[in-house]
Each structure stands twice: as structure tokens, then as C-alpha cells.
Design a protein around this nucleic acid. Sequence first.
DNA 1: GCATCTGCCTAATAGCTTTAGGCAAATAGA
DNA 2: TCTATTTGCCTAAAGCTATTAGGCAGATGC
Lengths: 189, 189
Amino acid sequence: MARAGLTKERLTRAGAELADEVGFEQVTVSELARRFGVKVASLYSHVKNSHDLKTRIALLALEEMADRGAAALAGRAGKDALAAFADVYRDYAREHPGRYTAARFRLDPEAAAASAGARHAQMMRAILRGYDLAEPDQTHAVRLLGSVFHGYVSLETAGSFSHSAPDSQESWSRIVDALDALLRTWPTA
Amino acid sequence: MARAGLTKERLTRAGAELADEVGFEQVTVSELARRFGVKVASLYSHVKNSHDLKTRIALLALEEMADRGAAALAGRAGKDALAAFADVYRDYAREHPGRYTAARFRLDPEAAAASAGARHAQMMRAILRGYDLAEPDQTHAVRLLGSVFHGYVSLETAGSFSHSAPDSQESWSRIVDALDALLRTWPTA
DNA sequence: GCATCTGCCTAATAGCTTTAGGCAAATAGA
DNA sequence: TCTATTTGCCTAAAGCTATTAGGCAGATGC
């Protein structure tokens, strides 16, 4: 029997593509096997189980977003950096909705530690270098930025902003403006 | 055979409790049947299918949150109202994580129209009465608030803030402070 | 008290997940 | 190059969930 050439990496990539097509929740070992023209059980030599597969897709998505974030931040500072980074999240979610959802998959501690999560946090802090925030306000601000980015993208993806004016793009720009203004005048306790 | 007294309502409530115990994704027609000491097929006289059940749980959660929100807003204005309303979301998610997730379940248009979604939007606008915002900035602000509330709660529930100082409660308070400050000095285009 | 309705049941189909064990293709060693 | 081992994909099987069809008996209406 000819071998299909399965590997963790190929399965993970194909899983990510599948997620973007049908949604992360609908990513299934069976469908993946079907796409490789292979029997389901065969995948279990490469991937521990369904959870493992999903974890790998999540890690891939986190890496990809971190890479894009790093590229966006290079040579930028202040509001410029903030806006570019914000767009990285939003654009990624629009281009790769399944992967984006995957990135929110709850990772177990080991996977989380090995993930690009730390890079994301570092980049947020790098953006805040353009603003004058000491601890613990810096941490509060990091959490706020993470919340806004994730929250907005998540609501937008769910279609919450698509049935009313103004355009979502406009709100997004104005929200980034607002965040910039807020960070410049952050109210200290 | 003694009847179990199944109804849509009881199934929905039990489904919501199940969601809080094991997670919304793990809510299953089978498990629900098990809890009622009844065969799986029996549920299908009361609920169209699994999707229908989840939709009902989502609608219940949205109602409950809207009710709490309304109670919190009564007699409050300005920052007071903002903080109380924010806490409604956060507290609800902490008390009822499964229901909270359910509330984010993607509803089809008919269900969405019949949901408490509109009440949520109205309450957000009511909060903004305490600030001086004209359209379209008011809509931008509503979207920002929704994003921050949902984003923060979602990240917090995922445990993103639980492994580092400062305390999540502190960040939450300071973020509400920051939002209040931002709304009072909202940057107009 | 009888007829109807309704609620829960049995039975059956179908899909996904996961484990165990087997054969053959690829690879490594002599 | 021939053999030995590893490794990749397969068959088989069990268990779970979802969903539909059809049946019997308890509840309800006249």
C-alpha cells in the first residue's frame, strides 16, 4: 500500500486549513483522514488524540500571529505600533477564523508554557514603551489591550457589528484612537 | 411507565446547569437524558435537536444577564452605572461559566431577533447617557464597552490572568476607572 | 367509561473516537 | 544486495453521541 506521508506537521497544517473552512469546533480526526485519503486509525500514530490535534493547531495559530505581530512592530512605536499590532489580530481573525478560534483553545499548562503566549505578552509590553506607564498600571493596560483586541475581534467575527451602522472598520479605527488617547492619559490611582 | 415530566423549560434549565458544571461544549442530549432518568429519544419530543437545545440555553443566559443588568442600572448613573453593569457581566460569567459561554453561542437570525440581545444594547446606551457622546461616537463606545467586557471576562475565564500579579480584581477595577475616564474625554475625530 | 392524545419507550441507522493487532513498505546493517 | 527491524497504514471492534420511526400506556377530554 502506498504511504500517504503523514506527519504531525502536515496533519496540523491540514487541520488548520480545515478549521478555517468549517470552523475549529468542526475539526475532526475523521474528516482529516478523509482529506488525506487514509483510514481514521492511521492518524493515531502521528497524533495522540483529538485534543492533541487541536492543541497543535492552537500552537500553530499562536506562532503565526506572534510572527505577524513581530513583523508589524518592527520599526514602529507609539500609536503607530499600537494600530499595526491591533490590525494583526483583527486581520488574522478575518483571514483565518478557524485558526483564530483555535488560538483561544484552552491549553493545558505544559502546552501553554511551550506556546507563543509569552511572545504575545512581550509584544504588548513593547507597545507600551511608547507610553509612560509604570507597574502595576502597565499590567492593567496589557490586560485591557488584550481584552479589547480579543473582545472586538470575537464580537465582529460573530457578526455583532455587521447589521448596523457605522461600518465596523470605522469603529475599529476610532477605538484604536481612543485606546491611544487613554494610554497617553492613563488615570493613576 | 411513570412520566418524568419533561418540558422545554425544564430541559433548558437542566441544560444550563449542566453547562455550568461541565462546560457548554460538553452539553449533550444524552447526558441530559441520563440526568432525567429517561431515554435519549424521549427528549426529541420536547426539543428539535441538539442545536435547538443549545439555542434555548443561550437565550436563557441572555435573559438572565439582561435581567441582572437592568436591576444593576436601576437608580444608578455615570461611573456608578458603568461599574455596576460591568460587574454584572463578570460576576455572571464567574457564577455561571457554562451559561456565559452559551450566551456567546452563534444564534441564527430568528433566534437572535427573539433574544435579549437588544436589551443589552439598550442598556449600554443607557449607561452612555451619563457621558456626553453624540453619534456615531456613541456606537463606537458601545462597541468598545462590549469588547472590553466580553474580552476581559473571556480571558479571565480562560485563566489568562490567574498566574501573574496583580490580582485580576484589581485590574478589573482599574480598567473600569480607565473606561470611565476615556468616556468622559472621548477623542472626537 | 371510552376515545384520543401525548409522553416515553424500543429499535435502528449513522458518524466520530480510540485501542489492539497485523501486514507490508521503507530503512539500516552486514 | 540481502536481511532484519522499524514504522506507516490497515482491519476490526467497542463505545459514545445524534437523530428518526414506530409502538404502548398513562393522562386527558367528552
